[in-house]
């Protein structure tokens, strides 16, 4: 590229120089500015979420692990890290039924499904099919809102706690006192060490905030599609860019699901 612009270069010099894609005047990454910046933002966001999940690993490994041989049958206690499936075993409208991980499974399904409707909206955008983009964006918004609703329920249940609570002995002002804890907050936790509840609030809360901003972005994209902004522009690349963000949120949940709920 650059060689052709230098008029004084002799023929032999020109053949010796290899043209590089980094000489300028083209797009080496073949992606628009907006898409590149979204990718690099997502990379930085991946580091943030990694840090949170690795912190979970660090704090979990610095606590005693539950072992049936040492601690007897599992019950909530401050001495060891709880088994997640024993903590998250409730579903709405079915009181006192032990249904481990069922509700979080439903949430996972909702988020994966909304990721599919998002990619269908992107595909419709490639075909400049305004009607289909609108349809799939609406389904994606509905999926995101459903996920947030589920999370609100799960948080409420986690904060409220079980009916019986957990009785603990703790040192307060130099005296050993027995008291019953119900649910969890940032300082007290009936399910296990307080750090477990802290990490639950931070990690699922940070992810939920991402879902919330994703839903807001999706609504903006839907609005712009509906009033014909992208049709006039001639392309639906904004749907693609917000789609990248939405899939990333789904991707993070895949990791949160494994490391917080399954392992």
């Amino acid at each position: 590229m650059a060689a052709t612009t230098v008029a004084s270069t002799t023929q032999s010099e020109m053949t010796e120089r290899k043209a590089s894609i980094w000489d300028g005047g083209n797009e080496p990454l073949k992606a628009s500015y907006g898409k590149l910046m979204m990718w690099f933002f997502l990379l930085s966001d991946a580091f943030t979420f990694s840090a949170l999940l690795i912190t979970y690993g660090l704090i979990r490994f610095s606590h005693t692990a539950y072992s049936e041989a040492v601690h007897g049958p599992f019950k909530f206690a401050q001495e060891y890290w709880p088994i997640p499936e024993r903590v998250f075993d409730a579903i709405p409208f079915f009181h006192d039924i032990h249904a481990p991980l069922v509700f979080v499974g439903i949430m996972t399904f909702v988020l994966i499904a909304s990721s599919v409707t998002m990619v269908l909206a992107v595909e419709a955008g490639h075909r400049n099919d305004r009607h289909d983009v609108e349809k799939w964006m609406l389904w994606t918004i509905l999926g995101g809102a459903t996920f947030l609703g589920c999370q609100a329920w799960e948080w409420t249940h986690f904060i409220t706690g079980t009916e019986a609570g957990t009785t603990i002995r703790t040192l307060e002002n130099g005296n050993w006192v027995t008291k019953t804890l119900f649910g969890a907050n940032l300082v007290a936790n009936q399910y296990g060490p307080p750090a477990f509840a802290d990490l639950f609030f931070f990690i699922t809360g940070f992810h939920g905030t991402h879902v919330l901003s994703g839903v807001v972005l999706n609504i903006l994209i839907f609005y712009n599609t509906a009033v014909g902004v992208y049709e006039r522009r001639g392309h639906y690349e904004m749907v693609e860019k917000v789609g990248l963000y939405w899939h990333f949120v789904d991707l993070v949940w895949v990791f949160v699901f494994t490391f917080f709920y399954l392992v």
Binding site: P28, L29, K30, G57, R60
Partner: peptide
């Protein structure tokens, strides 16, 4: 996407693996 873009996204994630191993051992 082009190979260069794929690698510029994936290679920095090596640091995550390092942090994971370091902090699990530390824990």
């Amino acid at each position: 996407e082009v190979k260069f873009l794929i690698w510029s996204i994936l290679i920095p994630l090596v640091f995550v693996i390092w942090l994971l191993i370091a902090l699990i051992v530390e824990g």
